[in-house]
Nucleic acid binder design. Structure first.
Lengths: 220, 220
DNA sequence: ATCACAAAATGAATTATGCTCATTATTGTT
DNA sequence: AACAATAATGAGCATAATTCATTTTGTGAT
């Protein structure tokens, strides 16, 4: 049967990826060797090149499954939540939760891939961007609801949300995961929501534009 | 004279670093070769190892000077500015301006070094952290002034400021510097300042806590 | 100026590792 | 069983970082 062949191939490929995850996440891209990955996977060095173009291709193939997982779980977690801000809060929580639970994946993705010019050209990156880019839709939804500010470019709002989250996760990873990543998630949510909030909402409720500057806070 | 010797060494070291900047920023860490760096610097391959422990050590030695420049210029730009928010605005502008003017440095620092576990152990990283960490002082100053919120951990506030800025710069670098990095600096400043602003300030001015939620924005 | 010594520079040799490819083994089909 | 197609193998190649024995250069004393 041809199907048998195919599934055997798939299994072998999977075992190489598993070995690669172990070795790459322990040693990093540079220090990891094909030889060690092959050994762990129980295949010859040469065999790896039957499944992957080269070392980088193997490395970049790792996140696909986990990224799919990130996306489907995220959608599940957002299911049944109404209101842009409630979704943002959940997104913040889920983002931190996901990396708390998958730190090796985080290490590879945040510290090595996200930042590589060749990774950016990858299909995986596209997929990842779409998954994480879900915030953009939430932001636009919030603008339509009228709760999220329209005076700022949506992409900048997205930079704010992803920027603070990625910075927090990166910092946590570089510190070797010493503290609880979810520790401050409520503070982070509140901060992000406050930042995105349409200042005009305050006006509407109170009937006038709130005074927002004090002495030392004039631009010139 | 021994002094003569020493300065000659320093000059040679400098010329190696200059060559390294050219080659690393053109090719990235991985693809750059010691051989090419040596050629450009006009020294033998072996000589490089008289000045630097290895390729990575050479790479990490690059940012020291430029980071010093970042720091002294930043202090100059902040000179004479009063009020935490005005300082934050200037910081936002300067951060973006610096990387707009030094994109090769940005590429190496943001995309290759910042993210390396071994770089984090470096003296250069300490120095860099202190320079950028200047925001922390500004944030604390703002809290003492009463304009910056005290309900959120200062480190999270710093994550917000550095997170959005680094995210913007990283995005810009990965897009190959196609657009003007300073384009949205005012929007970014406003957003950041609004996020940091003490919500109680609004209360003080208006005599009551502003109603900040509408139907769809309840937590439960 | 010459010599002795130390410091620095050199590049050929070593080593490590990603990757290729000719060969061998396995699987599926008739 | 014979054949063909597909997959696995690992020795060998190429590249590039690093080492080290040797040579060159600089310094101070005679």
């Amino acid at each position: 049967m041809a199907a048998n062949r195919i599934s055997k191939k798939a299994i072998r490929r999977e075992s190489i990826i598993q070995a690669a995850i172990e070795v790459f996440s322990k040693k990093g891209f540079q220090a990891a060797t094909i030889s060690e990955i092959a050994q762990r996977a129980g295949v010859a060095e040469g065999s790896i090149y039957q499944y992957f173009k080269n070392k980088e291709d193997l490395f970049f193939s790792i996140p696909i499954e986990e990224t799919k997982e990130f996306r489907t779980q995220l959608e599940l977690h957002l299911e049944g939540i109404f209101g842009a801000f409630n979704k943002i809060r959940k997104f913040v929580w889920y983002f931190l939760y996901f990396f708390k639970v998958n730190p090796e994946y985080g290490r590879m993705l945040m510290l090595e891939m996200r930042v590589s010019k060749s990774f950016v050209k990858t299909d995986t990156y596209d997929f990842l961007k779409k998954s994480v880019g879900h915030v953009l839709e939430i932001i636009i939804e919030g603008q339509e609801e009228g709760v999220i500010r329209k005076d700022t470019d949506v992409y900048i709002l997205r930079h704010l949300v992803l920027g603070i989250l990625e910075h927090i996760v990166t910092h946590w990873l570089l510190k070797g995961g010493k503290y609880d990543l979810l520790e401050h998630h409520q503070e982070v949510s509140r901060l992000v929501v406050d930042a995105l909030r349409n200042p005009a909402c305050l006006k509407d409720v109170q009937g006038h534009v709130p005074e927002r500057t004090i002495d030392t806070d004039a631009i010139d």
